[in-house]
C-alpha cells in the first residue's frame, strides 16, 4: 500500500510539472501556430535565472523565483521580436527550424554565461517529508502539485474569461478570420510568447530543486511533455493536463511495478502509439479547443 501511495504521489508531481511544460508549449501553438522546440531550453534558462537571482543577486527564495519568472516574460517578448516577428509570413516549417536554431542559441548563451557545471537551486521547503499512509513524500513534491494546480487554474481562467483568452481562442480556430475581425494578432503573439516563457520558467523552478540544473535539463522534459500534449489531443487545456498526469503515473507505476528498466522510454512509446493509432489523442473527449 505504502509503495502504491509513494509511486502515485511521485507520478502526480511529475505529471504536474509536465502539464505546466506542455501548457506553455500549447499556449504558443494555439496563439501563433508555432511549435516551439526551444521550449525545453526556455525551461533550462528559467531555472538558471532562478539560480542567478537567488545566489548571485542574493534574493530570498520566493522573490527570487518570481523575479526569474518575470524576467522570462521579457525573454519571451524578446524572442517574439527577434526570432518570430520577422518570420511571421513564412511557411510554418521555416519557423519550426528557426525555433531549433533559437534552442541552440539559448543553450550556447547559458553555457557562456553560467558555464557547464551543474548548478543547484534551493527549494523553499528543503528536504522535509510528510508521511501519508506509511509512504514518505517529499514536501517539494506536494508543493509542485499545488503550485502547478494553481497555475493551470489561472491559465484556464485567462483563456475562458478574459478578452486576451477570447482572442487566442479565435486565433486558434481561424487565424485568417481573426485578422479580419480585428483580433490584434501582434499583441496576442507577444503575450503568448511571454506567457509561454513564464510557464517554462515556472516548470523549471518547480522541478530543479529535486535534481540539479545543467544545459540539458529542460530538453528531456520538453520531449516528455510533448508526448503528454499529443496524448491529450494537442488541443484542449484539460486534455493536456490529463495527458500529463497519465504519462506521469504510467512512468512511475508501470516503472515501479512492471518494467523498471524501461520506465524512461514509456513516454516515447506512448507518443508513438498515439500518433500511429489515434492521432486525435486518447483523451480528446470534448470538441472544445481551449
Amino acid at each position: 500500500m505504502d509503495k502504491f501511495v509513494a509511486l502515485t504521489a511521485s507520478g502526480i508531481a511529475y505529471g504536474a510539472v509536465l502539464a505546466v511544460v506542455a501548457l506553455g508549449f500549447l499556449v504558443l501553438y494555439k496563439a501563433t501556430g508555432v511549435v516551439n522546440f526551444a521550449h525545453g531550453d526556455l525551461v533550462t534558462l528559467g531555472a538558471y535565472l532562478a539560480v542567478w537571482t537567488t545566489t548571485s543577486l542574493g534574493l530570498p527564495t520566493v522573490p527570487g523565483y518570481l523575479a526569474a519568472i518575470a524576467l522570462m516574460g521579457l525573454v519571451g517578448v524578446a524572442i517574439e521580436r527577434v526570432a518570430y516577428a520577422p518570420l511571421r509570413s513564412r511557411p510554418p516549417m521555416v519557423v519550426v527550424i528557426a525555433t531549433l536554431a533559437a534552442a541552440i542559441v539559448i543553450r550556447g548563451i547559458i553555457a557562456v554565461w553560467q558555464g557547464s557545471e551543474p548548478k543547484t537551486l534551493a527549494g523553499p521547503v528543503g528536504n522535509r517529508v510528510v508521511h501519508i499512509a506509511g509512504a514518505a513524500i517529499a514536501e517539494q513534491r506536494l508543493l509542485i502539485t499545488g503550485v502547478a494546480a494553481v497555475a493551470v487554474l489561472a491559465l484556464l481562467f485567462v483563456f475562458q474569461r478574459t478578452p486576451y483568452g477570447r482572442q487566442v481562442r479565435a486565433l486558434a480556430a481561424d487565424p485568417e478570420m481573426a485578422r479580419l475581425t480585428g483580433v490584434r494578432t501582434r499583441l496576442v503573439a507577444m503575450g503568448a510568447f511571454a506567457l509561454s516563457a513564464m510557464l517554462a520558467a515556472l516548470a523549471g523552478i518547480l522541478i530543479a530543486p529535486l535534481g540539479a540544473v545543467d544545459l540539458n535539463f529542460g530538453f528531456g522534459l520538453m520531449v516528455t511533455a510533448f508526448a503528454a500534449a499529443v496524448l491529450g489531443g494537442f488541443g484542449s487545456l484539460g486534455g493536456v493536463v490529463l495527458g500529463a498526469l497519465v504519462i506521469g503515473l504510467i512512468q512511475q507505476l508501470f516503472g515501479g511495478y512492471v518494467l523498471p528498466d524501461y520506465a524512461a522510454t514509456f513516454p516515447a512509446i506512448v507518443l508513438f502509439l498515439v500518433i500511429a493509432v489515434r492521432p486525435e489523442g486518447l483523451l480528446n473527449l470534448t470538441r472544445s479547443r481551449l
Binding site: 509511486l7 529535486l210 535534481g211 540539479a212 528531456g220 516503472g255 520506465a263
Partner: peptide
C-alpha cells in the same frame, strides 16, 4: 533510471531491505 531523472522513487522502494547499494550513475 534515466540520466535526467528527477524522481527515482521506484528505485528507492526496490532497494528496501538491502544491506548495501552500489550505484554507477550520472551525478544528477
Amino acid at each position: 533510471y534515466a540520466p535526467n531523472a528527477t524522481d527515482v522513487t521506484p528505485t528507492v522502494l526496490a532497494m528496501k531491505g538491502a544491506d548495501a547499494v552500489i550505484t554507477f550513475a550520472y551525478p544528477v
